[in-house]
């Protein structure tokens, strides 16, 4: 018995971590979501959540996340496809992945300079004769920068599944008289759908919870769920409502993961 006890003693710090930093925070967020701003136990947060103000915010947050995911997918799929055709696949992939190692803040900050009134983008517009425009602090800049940030995360899973595709299947489709479009629609896309799904998953959830970009790039014009949480926790100090939105975000996350999860689970 004692042997067994000492044998499992090494797992104590890790289990403590699970209890303190994984389970406890989730329970605390749940617990706090039942308190209103005066600190009384109530369901008012849940009532408030279904008022038009919040519903509109949630809708716009989902809309932006959808837009970001769709545009990243539209860019990433062809890019990943071309990547698999190049000779130095791994090198190109590395080059595309490298930006994802750089701090998000630095990338956002770089765009502040590029999109600024006297930045490179406006200089270019000036040069082609369109004239300078307000680019920063618009919806366009927000979506553009987010797409730029998320594209590597979209390319990676799609690239992996395209790379695993057996080329003989394409030959077979060709032999059987399928056009290139049919081959893509009936063979390539269905076989890489898992990559597309996990790509969408790793883009959509973070896109819902962005908060730093909305402040720096979108100039508070766009409010995502993440921005709302940050606002409630750090600015208005209405922790109950913030927790409520966190709970909502967590539920959404689980739903999306179940929706996009592949069948090969439990590894």
């Amino acid at each position: 018995m004692e042997n067994k006890l000492t044998r499992s003693l090494y797992a104590v710090p890790y289990l403590l971590w699970i209890i303190l930093f994984v389970v406890a925070p989730i329970l605390l967020v749940l617990y706090y979501s039942f308190f209103n701003i005066e600190g009384q136990l109530s369901l008012s947060n849940y009532e408030k959540f279904f008022t038009p103000v919040y519903l509109k915010m949630i809708f716009s947050s989902f809309w932006y996340a959808f837009l970001i995911t769709a545009i990243s997918l539209a860019v990433a799929y062809p890019a990943a496809y071309l990547l698999t055709k190049t000779t130095h696949k791994q090198l190109w992939l590395l080059l595309i992945i490298t930006p994802s190692w750089i701090n998000l803040l630095l990338k956002a900050y770089a765009f502040l300079g590029i999109f600024g009134t006297y930045g490179a983008a406006n200089n270019f517009l000036e040069m082609v004769g369109i004239g300078s425009k307000q680019i920063l602090f618009t919806d366009f800049s927000f979506v553009f920068v987010s797409v730029y940030i998320f594209i590597p995360f979209m390319i990676l899973p799609i690239f992996n599944s395209l790379n695993d595709l057996n080329p003989t299947l394409l030959d077979a489709a060709n032999d059987l008289g399928a056009s290139r479009w049919t081959t893509f629609r009936r063979v390539i896309f269905p076989l890489t759908i898992d990559g597309v799904k996990s790509g969408c998953q790793v883009v959509f959830i973070p896109a819902l919870s962005l908060f730093m970009l909305t402040r720096l790039i979108a100039g508070n014009r766009v409010i995502t769920l993440g921005t709302a949480i940050e606002q409630h926790f750090l600015v208005t100090e209405d922790w109950g409502m913030g927790s409520m939105i966190s709970v909502f975000l967590m539920i959404t996350m689980v739903l999306i993961m179940m929706l996009t999860g592949s069948r090969k689970r439990g590894a």
Partner: peptide
């Protein structure tokens, strides 16, 4: 998401 980790 980081926001939830931070808030919790």
């Amino acid at each position: 998401p980081d926001v939830i980790i931070g808030a919790s």
